[in-house]
Design a binder for these strands. Structure first.
Lengths: 229, 229
DNA sequence: GGAGATTATGTCAGCGACTGACATTCGGCA
DNA sequence: TGCCGAATGTCAGTCGCTGACATAATCTCC
């Protein structure tokens, strides 16, 4: 979310312009809906919160809610979605001399670090991100929707990697395989974070991510008779 | 009717016995529901099939449907679930001298091969499995539910691997990481299968799985400047 | 072989997510 | 100012899903 305020919409110079009252109001009610949904979900659970509640908390009709979000899930996952977009953006900017795996690792760490610095508190903060991930993890329908989103992100990662290394993902399986592996290891780290003892700030999460990635080699290697590092 | 055939109901050796009329009928209507759901979903799509349709195709009430399945998704994914259970069973029986990764690869291949031989046609056959996977892949809500199921299976895999190698998954990250990697590579192979050109039988799928696993090393290794094998 | 306990099923009423259609209001712009 | 299009509200309806209660089928045990 760090570099996100200027949302380029159409023309190149139009980029920084004030997007007009209508557009601003739209963004405003959307934010308000996400915010309200967030609070209600965390306060009383996902299932026990009705869309009507969210809508009337922002003073719009239920129908309007569904014009902003395809379903209740989407409102809950909106925050995560922004973070994921930022990760993709980071990946685009990695130097070409990094290996694909290095680029992925560096991007995800940069993303967490920036997001952590950017918003130390308030909605979208790291602490509320943790709460949100906990909510997702033990709300089956939310978890399902989230996993689907993640796999869609993976497709984008495949494209970016293939482009970066100049090869065709339909010919060469490496981008697909690496994106899949990356995503799953990341998710394992996420799980540890939510399940674990002391949920430290972003640095704690970063440490967890690195730990998990460092086990990639050992996990794939032969037997496990010797203890891991 | 058969008032007194020897029908011990609680004894341990009862395991293989005919499970009683009630139990048999239950299994029967459950199978019929899965079957009907399967046909309707493939015929007219998941969203355009109502639960009422499925129920009345088997001549039971809608309420009964929901006593067998928690939701519409579950009926669609029931076939997959059986296959996944069989995979876990295979994993349990792998010899101890295989490395964890080898055991996983061997189990999934055995599972596909056995299921392929077992049911050459009809419901639950390989061809209808392919159709089902296509349906899942382009039905967002089904895909989401399926992914959630897969991650639950992964947890079991973690347990089995940890037990097999005699270590504690909370201390040692390798089981978790390997299970995650395995699951994601498998899913990549599944995607190729559904998206791909010639959907050959189970052997085609097995070949695809092996291709993907063989790219694990190359994908994680340094740069990709040299073409993959 | 029948009385009584279990258990599957049906029926009914109701909530909540989601959608299409149409009316209304509000911002953008000549 | 006045028109156009976009955002919103209203309404009615479908469908997934659930709790409560009644009924009918199986099971158990005497």
């Amino acid at each position: 979310m760090a570099a996100h305020t200027p949302r380029p919409t159409a023309a190149p110079e139009d980029a920084g312009r004030t997007p007009g009252l209508r557009e601003r109001k739209k963004q405003q009610t959307r934010d308000a809906l996400v915010q309200a949904a967030h609070e209600l979900f965390l306060g009383q659970g996902f299932a026990r919160t009705t869309v009507d509640e969210i809508a009337s908390a922002v003073d719009v009709s239920q129908r309007t809610f569904f014009r902003y979000f395809a379903n209740k899930d989407e409102a809950a996952l909106a925050v995560m979605a922004e973070a994921e977009d930022y990760f993709i953006e980071c990946l685009h900017h990695r130097p070409a001399d990094e290996t694909p795996l290095q680029a992925l690792r560096a991007s995800i760490i940069k993303a967490w670090r920036d997001l952590g610095n950017d918003k130390a508190s308030g909605p979208g903060s790291i602490t509320s991100a943790l709460e949100l991930m906990r909510l997702i993890e033990d709300t089956p329908t939310l978890l399902a929707a989230h996993l689907r989103r993640v796999t869609e992100q993976e497709r984008i990662v495949v494209r970016v990697l293939a482009e970066r290394e100049g090869l065709d993902p339909r010919e060469d399986l490496r981008p697909t395989v690496l994106a899949a592996v990356f995503g799953s290891v990341l998710r394992a780290a996420h799980l540890s974070w939510t399940a674990d003892r002391e949920p430290e700030g972003p640095e704690g999460m970063i440490a967890l991510i690195e730990q998990h990635f460092d086990q990639l080699g050992p996990a794939l290697a032969g037997h496990w008779r010797t203890p891991a590092t």
